[in-house]
Design a binder for these strands. Structure first.
Lengths: 210, 210
DNA sequence: CCGTTATGGGAAGTTAAACTATCCATACTG
DNA sequence: CAGTATGGATAGTTTAACTTCCCATAACGG
């Protein structure tokens, strides 16, 4: 297929497809002559993935690029998912030194108690978690942190479910993309469910004892 | 206190404070003369809240403004949290009609089975959830949706925890802000925990049967 | 009391991200 | 073979979130 069809099929405007090609988010088509190219169904799927990551996942294009490079590159699934999580997280915001230390200690203690491997503070995933906890403290809402253990247990259950969903796949090839989708869309889906549930529960509670 | 101190205390540059004042994100200080004003500790707290919502929560300033107006306005806690959730969600991306209908039906069925009130598709919270599910389907990852029930049960547990954290507060006044913080930062914290747990679990699984 | 510094307020400029529009030489199509 | 489409490149647009600059007035230090 050529440009127009690729664009129609994926729902991405021609100008934007060209832009994605320039940015390396979409691999170039197979050239049929010095200035003509042909695209395949994989290009369509790739465009759909980019759309999903940006529009639903809210990732900046630069992160999408890094993620795509990782899944295309010859890294192990585990390494690739590491990159995905780093990119998903974005730069952690700066917080005060003391709040950050408090949060880091809290987390380290948590992972010790749950027998989790402590990966240090390098990763952005951890950095963001620390920043969020530190910010909660700075705003005077340590209550959230006090229940961290319980959140942790539930997060573990969700993660087990995530991994089950992904490993339930037959194609060993598509497992990385599935992991990506499960992580990015899974976050949105779970957050959405949580919000619905919050409204439900808060309604129950407020109506029982107003 | 005056500008310089407000800025130092909150960590927000003077020019940015002025910008927030112009945008109505920060209420004007108490005027002491036609062109001089004094700010209070509440202004500092408000700035910290704005910083938390933008930097950690990733909300656009316009949404922060809407949220702040809601918590300042004379709405019930329940109404206010409704606004908070709408703003938190952002515009749902467009997805194909048929995938959207599939997702909506799935959700409606889900809420019937769990005895949840069905709020229709108006709210952005639901719209985003539908879009995320629809996108997963369009990408060929319906597996996620098949386990929706299980995610749902866990989301409910998380939400119960959220509400407990918030209602455990003494000050009836600060309960709305606490709800806001619990929702916005809570999302980030839980997502962070989930990612750590995903890595842990996937490592276990991949190492057990490589 | 007076020179220096800070302040409130607003207009204009900046930066970055993500497109979008316009060209143009070549290629395909009816 | 006339007319439309394509690939490739460059420049322009839009929006968000700031920053800079300016100025008249106020506060502050000696």
């Amino acid at each position: 297929m050529r440009m127009a069809e690729l664009s129609a099929e994926s729902g991405v405007p021609v100008a934007t497809v060209k832009y994605y090609l320039r940015e390396g988010l979409l691999p170039p088509g197979e050239r049929t002559s010095p200035n003509q190219a042909r695209y395949s169904a994989e290009h369509v799927q790739r465009l759909r993935l980019v759309k999903a990551l940006t529009e639903v996942g809210g990732l900046p294009l630069a992160s999408v690029g890094a993620v795509l490079q990782a899944i295309d590159g010859s890294a192990t699934p585990h390494e690739t998912m590491g990159v995905v999580q780093e990119e998903l997280a974005g730069d952690p915001p700066k917080v005060s030194e003391e709040a950050a230390e408090w949060a880091a200690a809290l987390l380290q203690d948590l992972s010790r108690r749950h027998g989790w491997k402590w990966h240090g503070l390098e990763s952005r995933a951890v950095g963001n978690l620390v920043a969020a906890l530190a910010t909660a403290k700075e705003l005077g809402h340590e209550k959230l942190a006090e229940r961290l253990d319980e959140y942790c247990v539930l997060a573990l259950r969700v993660a087990r479910l995530d991994v089950e969903v992904v490993t339930g796949l037959t194609s060993f090839d598509k497992i990385i993309e599935a992991g990506l989708v499960a992580t990015v869309l899974g976050d949105r889906i779970f957050t959405g469910l949580r919000h619905l549930a919050q409204e439900l529960v808060s309604f129950e509670v407020l109506n029982r004892a107003p």
